[in-house]
Structure formats: C-alpha cells, structure tokens
Amino acid sequence: MTMIQTQPQEPTLRESRNTSEDAVTFVTRDVTVHYGAKKALDNVSLDINKNDVTALIGPSGCGKSTYLRCLNRMNDIIPGCRVSGRILLDGEDVYAKSMDVVHLRARVGMVFQKPNPFPKSIYENVAYGPRIHGIARDRAHLDGIVFTSLEKAGLLGEVKDRLHEPGTSLSGGQQQRLCIARAIAVQPEVILMDEPCSALDPIATAKIEELMDELRINYSIVIVTHSMQQAARVSQRTSFFHLGVIVETGETEQIFTNPIDRRTQDYITGRFG
C-alpha cells in the first residue's frame, strides 16, 4: 500500500547536508534572557546548521525574536536586558569581551519585518557596509560588490538602470530585497530574518522565499515567522518556541506532519493549548 511516509527517509538532494562539527554555524547552550525582572528565554539550546534555513515558530511572546536577537547581540541596545548561557559562532563566544560587535553584525546580518533602506540611493544602500568595513579595495571593486549583491538578492535586473534613485522609491518587496542585498554585501555567514515577509504581498513573498532557497547554498539562514505555511515551505529545520522554552526542534517535514510534543501539535493545527 502506498502512503505518505513520515518516517525518517534517505535525505533528498534538497535536504542533504553533513552533520559534522564544521557544518554547525551557531552552537547555543542554556541561553537565558531577562528583560529586567521578566524572564523572556529560559535555558534554550539549539544548533544552527550551515546551509540550512532554520525556522523559529511559536505564538507572540514565546521568545523566538528574543532568541534571534541574541545571535548578533541586537539585544545589547535594549535597556535592562541580560543574557546568560553560551552562544558560539564557529566556536567563538559571541558575548566575549573581545568580540567586536560591529564586526559580528557584519558576519551575522539581519533583515527586519519592515523594509528599512537608508534614505540614500539604491547603490549607496548596498555600498555603505563594504565601505565602512573596508571590504572594497577601490571603486571598481565596490561596483563589483554592489552588482553581485543586487544580483544575488534577485534585484539587479529590476534596478540596474536606476541605481542612483532613492532606495525608498522601490516597492515594498523590492525594498526588502534591497535590504537583503545590503546584508549580503558585507559577506556574512548568517542572515537572520525577523518576519521578513509579513509586510509583503504574496508575489513579493514568493520572490523572497525563492531567494532564501538560493541564498542557503552560501549562507545559514534563521527566520522567525508567524506563517507556519512559510516555515514549512522554506525551512529544513524548525524549532517550536513556547513560553520562553524550545518545546521541539526537528526536521521541518517531521514537525509539520508528525510532531512529537502535544503542544507543538496543538499549535500547528490551530487548537487551544
């Protein structure tokens, strides 16, 4: 009898990846975050694999965005925020005193819910990062980086004749891809995306999702999303957060067809917890 099998299967090309040490970008252990007296994240441990899209799902206030912001220390700017536990990026302690936060945020780029291009030209939006990080050797090199980044972000074709128009003149979906190009321009290892499509229409969303699938060949991607269908479509691994803890992490297919934990089941099927 033929039947949809939800048991572990031979990995397909799309899912295949190695699981050795060097295939893990972030190792996070016992991460606890307080905002003042309030505990937002409680002893969370998770590995982020290279070349995977990892989706973080869960109800509002479950800690998924808090966790995401720990990965490039975006929480540093929030008053009263305390982070404990270990967060290692390629074995390096992200919260070590010696860590250069500006450099860290180049290595771990971020794309936000609302596209936030700088009030500058399309070209300058992308060129800004490489310039301040001293990545570009000369003008020709910088041009190359800008073009390649726009190309990788799937935007070049649409903007190549208007590079000196303001970034804000683009449509919402184009602006979001411009923000992705800006993140890529500084050659990051990881791209964090916090609800990157929630302000976009379905076509712009599909373009970003297609882009994620291409980008993961070179980068690790972590995405926070409230759309479970989106998590199911774009990710290889999914973590379900609830009340500041990770309830379940697994292969995306397993999480959405046969979750182990009752709370995961209730959440993804839209039941009362």
């Binding site: 199911a232 959405f256 046969n258 979750p259 995961t264 089941q265």
Partner: peptide
C-alpha cells in the same frame, strides 16, 4: 485550511 499534522493525516486517511 492547509491542514497540518494529525489533521492532515486524518484528511488523507479519509480520502483513501
């Protein structure tokens, strides 16, 4: 509905 998990399985099982 874009059913998931046990809902999805119940619907597929009913179809068959």
């Amino acid at each position: 509905r874009q059913p998931m998990a046990s809902d999805l399985r119940q619907i597929i099982a009913a179809l068959k």
